[in-house]
Amino acid sequence: MGCILDHIAVAAPTLEAGAAFVTETLGVSPQAGGEHPRMGTHNLLLRLGDRVYLEVIAANPAAPAPGRPRWFALDSLPGNAAPFLAAWVARAEDIRTWAEKSPEPLGPVEAMSRGTLEWLITIPEDGALPLGTGPALIQWQPGVHPASKLQDHGLNLIGLEIHHPDPKRVSRLLESLALEGPLSVKPLPEGAAPYLEAHIDTPRGVRVLRAAR
């Protein structure tokens, strides 16, 4: 089995700003998540399916600096930046094997935790996002997936579009990871900034979360 779309990440200068953005777009407020001690970040969560969720992530002002670049390129986010769909994460059963198959450098495999949850994840040493939009690879410790513990508001991720000026390069990466999930690649003009769009079915109809442009 290949890698599977696990979650999408909204980057924000503060959790409050990220929550307001998600609530305005989807009509549902994300619920409390927790803190990531090794990264100096914290998050909010929203279920998007049985084993899929949305994460709002921001630097934690109450935590000490991590002594290394934070993940999801959060250190490059200005304090007045608008929240945006920044990245996505794919689940793997053997993260190191799949990371080695990638034609793009995904970063070292790191051990992380949030409360009682523990996992392995790829993080570039400079905190950047592979190809500007992700993915990161994640391997959860055996047990219940985090999405199953979240309140079900009837939201479902029905499509994630990767808009990129080098679609062949992105497609090559997806193929190397044998990715499963509602993913598609859309071409952009040469030199254009890549971005993501998530199409999410809600009780009020399909809504679209977009990246900053």
Rank of each mutant, 00 (worst) to 15 (best):
R96D: 15
N156E: 11
P105N: 07
L174I: 11
V109F: 00
P105W: 04
W119H: 02
H164P: 00
A136W: 14
D152R: 11
L131A: 00
L150Q: 06
I123K: 12
I162F: 00
I138D: 07
R169F: 01
D94L: 12
P165R: 00
A86K: 13
G79P: 00
P105I: 13
G134L: 10
G143T: 07
L117E: 09
H163Y: 02
F84C: 14
I162L: 05
T116A: 15
L177W: 01
A178N: 05
A73L: 10
L85D: 07
P165N: 08
L77K: 07
T116Q: 09
P146H: 10
P78G: 05
K149G: 10
E104M: 13
L160T: 02
H145F: 13
L129C: 07
S113P: 04
A111V: 13
L106G: 15
A147E: 14
R91N: 06
D126E: 13
D75M: 09
L157K: 08
D166I: 02
H163M: 15
A136E: 10
P124T: 08
P130M: 13
Q151H: 06
L155M: 08
H153F: 15
L150K: 03
E104W: 09
E100K: 14
A128Y: 11
L131Q: 14
P108S: 06
I158Y: 07
V109W: 02
I121K: 00
A81T: 02
Q141E: 12
L129Q: 12
R96W: 01
G127W: 13
A81K: 03
A86L: 10
I158G: 08
M112L: 13
A86I: 07
E110K: 10
G143Y: 05
S113W: 05
H145T: 01
F72R: 04
T122Y: 04
A82N: 04
G79D: 15
L120K: 13
G143V: 11
S102Q: 09
S171W: 03
A82Q: 13
G127T: 12
L85K: 07
S113K: 11
P142Q: 09
L137W: 02
